Structure formats: C-alpha cells, structure tokens
Amino acid sequence: PDLGLTQLFADPNLIENLKKNPKTSEMMKDPQLVAKLIGYKQNPQAIGQDLFTDPRLMTIMATLMGVDL
C-alpha cells in the first residue's frame, strides 16, 4: 500500500502550492528536489527510500498533510 501518498502527490498544483508555502518555498528553488517531487506523481513508492536520505521530504510531507512540525 502507498499509505495515501498517491493522493498527496497527485495534486496538479503540488509544486506551485509548495512554492507559495513559507515552510517549503526555499526548498522549491532546488531543481533536483522539484524533479523528485514530479517523479513521485508517477511512482509514489519511490519516496519511501528518499525519506531516509533527504530530510526536506519529511517537511514537505508534513506540509502536504497539514501537520505543523
């Protein structure tokens, strides 16, 4: 199971919303991170391994779920 990750990354406004959010806007200036996020739309399971190697993803996930870290 993808634990709902498919829906989190399926939002067509995902990148724009993250660019507008004060907690994630600075991160979204990294083209490699943006490319990763776009890739998760097609393969949400890929985030599982990346969560352990890129701490920014935890902040992004929390933001998408509405959790304040």
Rank of each mutant, 00 (worst) to 15 (best):
M27T: 02
Y40G: 02
L57Y: 04
V34I: 13
E26K: 07
M61Y: 14
F52P: 08
E16R: 06
D30Y: 01
L37G: 00
A62L: 15
G48K: 14
K19P: 00
V34L: 11
T53C: 07
I38Y: 08
Q7I: 12
L37W: 01
K23T: 09
N43D: 10
Q49C: 10
K36Y: 05
L57H: 01
A62E: 14
Q45M: 13
Y40Q: 01
G48W: 15
E16N: 11
G48F: 15
L5V: 10
G48A: 15
E16D: 10
M65E: 04
F52V: 12
M27G: 01
G39K: 15
G66W: 06
L64Q: 02
G66P: 06
P12I: 06
P44I: 10
K19T: 13
I38G: 05
D2R: 05
R56G: 03
K20Y: 06
T6G: 14
T6K: 12
D50M: 04
D54T: 01
E26T: 07
K23S: 09
Q42C: 09
L8A: 08
K23P: 03
M27W: 09
S25T: 09
T6M: 14
L3F: 14
T63E: 09
P1E: 11
K20S: 14
K29G: 06
V67F: 14
T59D: 04
L51F: 11
I38T: 08
K19R: 13
P55I: 09
L51K: 05
Q42L: 11
T53V: 09
T59F: 14
D11F: 02
D2P: 14
R56A: 06
K20A: 13
T53Q: 12
E26C: 07
M61W: 15
G39P: 01
R56E: 04
N43P: 02
K19F: 08
E16K: 07
D54N: 02
T63W: 11
T59R: 08
M58W: 15
Q7E: 14
R56V: 06
K36M: 12
L3S: 13
A10R: 12
K19C: 07
T24G: 01
R56D: 06
D11H: 06
N43T: 05
T6A: 15
E16T: 08
A10K: 11
P44R: 03
L8M: 10
A10E: 11
N17K: 15
I47G: 05
D68Q: 03
D50E: 12
V34H: 02
N17T: 14
I60M: 04
L69Q: 14
Q32S: 13
K19M: 13
G39I: 11
Q49M: 12
L14C: 05
Q49N: 13
V34C: 05
M61L: 14
K23F: 09
T6V: 14
Q42F: 09
M28N: 00
G4K: 15
A10P: 02
T53D: 13
D54K: 01
Q32D: 14
R56T: 04
K20L: 11
N21P: 00
K36S: 04
L33H: 00
L18D: 00
L33F: 11
D68F: 02
T53N: 12
K23Y: 08
M61T: 05
D2Y: 03
R56I: 07
Q32G: 14
L57Q: 01
Q42H: 14
P31I: 07
D54V: 01
P1Y: 01
D2H: 14
K23Q: 14
P22C: 06
E26G: 08
D30I: 02
L51R: 05
G66I: 07
T53E: 12
L37H: 00
G66D: 11
P22N: 06
M58I: 12
A35M: 11
K29R: 12
L18C: 02
L37P: 00
D30L: 01
K20N: 13
K20F: 05
P12E: 09
A46M: 13
S25N: 09
P31G: 06
T63I: 15
M27L: 13
G48H: 15
F52E: 10
G66S: 08
I38M: 15
K19I: 11
K36D: 03
L14E: 01
M58T: 07
A35K: 11
T59Q: 10
N43G: 05
L3W: 15
P12T: 06
K19G: 04
N17L: 12
L64M: 07
I60G: 00
Q45A: 13
K41S: 15
G4H: 12
D68S: 03
K23C: 07
Y40C: 02
P55M: 08
K20I: 09
K20T: 11
K29W: 04
L18R: 00
M61Q: 02
D50H: 06
N21I: 04
V67Q: 13
T6L: 15
P1I: 11
Q7K: 15
L33N: 01
G66H: 09
P31M: 08
L69E: 15
K41Q: 15
N13F: 12
L33Q: 01
N13D: 12
I60L: 06
K41D: 03
D68T: 02
D68Y: 01
Q42E: 14
L5Y: 12
R56C: 03
L8N: 03
G4S: 15
P55V: 10
L3H: 13
T53R: 12
P31W: 06
E26N: 09
Q45D: 13
V34Q: 05
Q7P: 06
G4C: 11
F9N: 01
A10C: 07
K19A: 10
M28Y: 01
M58C: 09
P12V: 07
I60E: 00
Q42D: 15
L69P: 13
G66F: 07
Q32W: 14
P55N: 08
M61S: 03
Q45F: 09
I15S: 01
M27E: 02
Y40V: 03
D2T: 14
L69A: 13
V67K: 11
Q7Y: 07
F52A: 13
Q49L: 11
T59H: 09
D68P: 01
T59L: 15
L8V: 10
D30W: 01
P55C: 07
N13A: 11
M27P: 01
T59M: 11
T53G: 07
P55L: 07
N13K: 10
K19Y: 07
L3D: 11
L3V: 13
Y40D: 01
L14M: 12
V34N: 02
N43W: 06
P22R: 05
K20V: 09
N17A: 11
D2A: 15
T6E: 13
L69W: 03
P12K: 05
L8T: 04
D30T: 01
G4L: 15
M28L: 06
V34A: 04
D11Y: 03
L37D: 00
N43F: 10
Q45W: 10
P44D: 04
I47F: 15
Q7W: 07
L3A: 14
G48C: 11
L51M: 14
G39L: 12
T63V: 15
I38N: 12
I38H: 08
D50R: 03
I38A: 10
M27R: 01
N21K: 03
K41R: 14
M65H: 06
L5K: 05
N17H: 11
G66E: 12
F52Y: 12
N13Q: 12
I38S: 08
Q49K: 13
M65Y: 08
I15E: 02
G4I: 15
I47P: 04
Y40R: 01
L33D: 00
D2Q: 15
Q45L: 13
M58Y: 14
V34S: 03
S25D: 03
